[in-house]
């Protein structure tokens, strides 16, 4: 097991190097010269040269790449171009709201989706099952944008049940006041695809021989569902949940933008709008690292909950 983990961590090195190379090519080569953006209206040859020197853009490309590698290794990405804040401090203040929103979304969404999926899978072929599948298919076809626009308009603006947007410094205030509507809309958007996926997991397990055996020995239906089927169906569910964890860090971009939540997703959108390359680079590196770590963790958890799996 330890050898496996060490080998997997070792394999992350070339991948991380690749991500750095990709970002470097994108921002230092394809992206063109950012000093024109930074110089703004006071465009003069000295100002441009000064900015280039400050950013190290007058150095040859390999040397610029080394600077970027050093930034990644020390996790110090310098200062944001638009606000002059240190990038690490900026991201540190953005991660909390994102985790609060996406974490509660994941928790509530998963519990709801598993409950509904287990119910419809158990009564598969019935009217309820077909109705839920049909509604889920239709719900998935509507763009997430529409849910958010309509929800914000009718539930917050017209209905007045929720604040239209905003965020405060106190977690309690956020939880009670500002979080519920984004949370509700996020859960609604994510529910349909989850129900469809989890339903297929449950239906597959229900067709196995051990379910028939359990019925034949006279076990009650709740025991079969909860003790036998649920535990086996949880294997793909837990795997997909683990895989979605790095996205928690990324935050819910659209929800944060609409509801003015100062999280990572909103930060990404604003950074792209302002061409704030250091912030985009830093977020991408962090998310890539998290994705790689959670992929490893997923495989380990997979092994722990399913003894049939062999890691190699």
């Amino acid at each position: 097991m330890l050898a496996y983990i060490v080998r997997r961590v070792w394999q992350m090195v070339p991948t991380l190097f690749g991500v750095m190379l990709l970002l470097f090519v994108l921002f230092n080569w394809v992206g063109g010269d950012p000093s024109y953006i930074l110089a703004g209206k006071n465009l003069s040859a000295e100002a441009l040269a000064g900015i280039r020197q400050q950013l190290g853009l007058d150095l040859p490309l390999p040397q610029q790449f080394l600077i970027f590698v050093r930034q990644v290794l020390t996790l110090d990405f310098g200062t944001s171009w638009s606000t002059q804040q240190p990038v690490s401090a900026l991201l540190h203040s953005r991660i909390g709201p994102s985790l609060l929103l996406t974490g509660s979304m994941l928790l509530l969404g998963t519990v709801l989706a598993i409950a509904i999926a287990a119910l419809v899978a158990y009564r598969r072929g019935s009217l309820t099952d077909r109705l839920v599948t049909l509604i889920a298919t239709c719900a998935m076809s509507v763009s997430a944008l529409v849910y958010i626009i309509a929800g914000q308009y009718w539930l917050a603006f017209k209905g007045g049940w929720f604040p239209i947007m905003g965020w405060s410094d106190s977690t309690l205030d956020n939880l009670l006041h500002y979080l519920p509507l984004p949370l509700l809309l996020g859960v609604i958007v994510g529910l349909a695809p989850d129900i469809r996926f989890y339903r297929s997991c449950f239906v597959e397990e229900l067709g196995h021989d051990y379910v028939r055996t359990a019925r034949a020995k006279g076990l009650s239906e709740p025991v079969i569902m909860l003790k036998h089927v649920l535990r086996n169906a949880m294997i793909p569910v837990v795997t997909s949940l683990m895989m979605s964890l790095p996205y928690l860090m990324m935050g819910a971009m659209l929800l944060e933008t609409f509801f003015g939540i100062p999280g990572m997703g909103k930060e990404v959108v604003m950074a792209v709008e302002r061409s704030d390359f250091p912030v985009i680079k830093a977020i991408t590196i962090y998310i890539a690292l998290a994705t790689m770590l959670f992929n490893l963790l997923t495989d380990i958890v997979y092994k722990l909950i399913d003894p049939r799996v062999q890691l190699h």
Binding site: L26, I283, A288
Partner: peptide, 22 residues
């Protein structure tokens, strides 16, 4: 290797990173 690089960044973030420079 290229595949693992591209899949280690979420789609939307990658899209935005590309959109930022183009």
């Amino acid at each position: 290797w290229g595949y693992s690089v591209f899949t280690s960044v979420p789609d939307m973030l990658l899209l935005l990173a590309f959109a930022a420079v183009s």
